[in-house]
C-alpha cells in the first residue's frame, strides 16, 4: 500500500477518503440525531439529477449537482414546516421529484450514458486535484460552522421548539444544517457516488450513536469511523481488486454492526423507546 502512495491518483484517493469520510460522517450525526435518515438519499438524487442536467447542457456537472443539492436543501425545511410534515416526509417528496428529473434528463442525453451513470457509482481512484480542493474547502467550511454554532446546533438537535423558546433563531440554524448536508453530499458525489454516499452518511454516525451520550464525542467518533471506513475500503479494494465504493460501504456497515453488538446503550430500558 505504501509504495502506492507515490502515485498521484492514490494520494488523491487517500486525501479524498479523509475529506469525504470526515465530512459525510459529520452530517451523518445531524441525519441520525434528527431522525431524517433519507436526507442522504434525497440529496444524492438531487446531486445526480443536477449532475446529469449539467452533462446535458454542457455545464460543469459538479457545479450543477451542488446547485441542485442546495436547492433541495432549501426546499426540505420550508416544505416540512409549511405542510406540517415530519421532515422525512418532505425529504421523500423532494426525493421523488429529483428521481423523476434525473430519469427525465437521463433519457434526454443522446447516445451512451456512461458518464452520467458514473455519477451513480462514483470513483475514488479518478478524483482530480480540483475535486480534492473543492472537497477540502467544503469540509473546512462545515467543520468551522459546526465549531462556531455548536451550542445552537445542539439545541436544535435536542428539540426545535425548546431551541426557539430559549431565544435561539432555530429556523435559520435548522435550515442551515440541511443546507450544509446538501453541500457535503454534492461535494462527495464524484468520489463515492450518488447511491453509496447514503451509507457513508448513515453508518459511521449510527455506529457512533451506539457508543456515546455526548454529542461532541459523537461527532469525533463518527468522523473517525468515516475515515476508517474509507481507508480500509481503499486498502481492501486494492488487495482484492473490488470496486472501492462498495468495499467502503461494507466496511462502514461492519463497523456499525460491531458498535451495535458492543454498545453500552443496549442495556438501556425504560422510557420513550422508539
Amino acid at each position: 500500500m505504501l509504495e502506492l502512495l507515490q502515485y498521484q491518483f492514490m494520494q488523491n484517493a487517500v486525501l479524498a477518503s479523509i475529506l469525504g469520510g470526515v465530512s459525510c460522517s459529520i452530517i451523518g450525526v445531524f441525519v441520525v440525531t434528527m431522525e431524517i435518515p433519507f436526507l442522504g438519499v434525497s440529496m444524492s438524487h438531487s446531486a445526480f439529477a443536477g449532475g446529469i442536467l449539467g452533462l446535458l447542457l454542457g455545464i460543469d456537472p459538479f457545479a450543477m449537482a451542488l446547485l441542485f443539492c442546495l436547492l433541495s436543501a432549501l426546499l426540505i425545511g420550508p416544505v416540512a414546516d409549511k405542510a406540517d410534515f415530519n421532515p422525512d416526509m418532505a425529504v421523500g417528496i423532494i426525493f421523488s421529484i429529483m428521481l423523476g428529473l434525473a430519469f427525465l434528463f437521463l433519457a434526454m442525453i443522446p447516445g451512451p450514458k456512461t458518464e452520467a451513470l458514473s455519477l451513480i457509482w462514483g470513483s475514488i481512484l479518478t478524483v482530480s486535484r480540483k475535486d480534492i480542493v473543492v472537497m477540502g474547502i467544503i469540509a473546512f467550511i462545515v467543520m468551522a460552522l459546526l465549531a462556531l454554532f455548536f451550542k445552537e446546533i445542539q439545541a436544535v438537535i435536542f428539540d426545535r421548539e425548546i431551541a426557539a423558546s430559549v431565544g435561539i433563531p432555530e429556523r435559520p440554524i435548522y435550515y442551515g444544517i440541511l443546507f450544509l448536508s446538501g453541500a457535503i453530499i454534492a461535494a462527495n458525489l464524484n468520489t463515492i457516488g450518488g447511491l453509496l454516499i447514503f451509507s457513508l452518511v448513515i453508518n459511521p454516525a449510527a455506529a457512533a450513536y451506539q457508543l456515546t451520550y455526548s454529542l461532541r464525542n459523537m461527532f469525533f467518533l463518527s468522523g473517525a469511523f468515516g475515515v476508517l471506513s474509507c481507508f480500509l475500503g481503499l486498502f481492501f479494494s486494492y488487495i482484492f481488486n473490488f470496486p472501492t465504493g462498495a468495499v467502503i460501504i461494507i466496511v462502514s456497515s461492519l463497523i456499525f454492526f460491531l458498535c451495535l453488538i458492543f454498545s453500552p446503550k443496549k442495556r438501556v430500558k425504560g422510557v420513550n423507546i422508539r
Partner: peptide, 12 residues
C-alpha cells in the same frame, strides 16, 4: 412545555 418526547439515545 407539557411533554417532550426525547429519544432514549439522545446524546445529551
Amino acid at each position: 412545555p407539557q411533554m417532550l418526547s426525547i429519544d432514549v439515545r439522545m446524546p445529551m
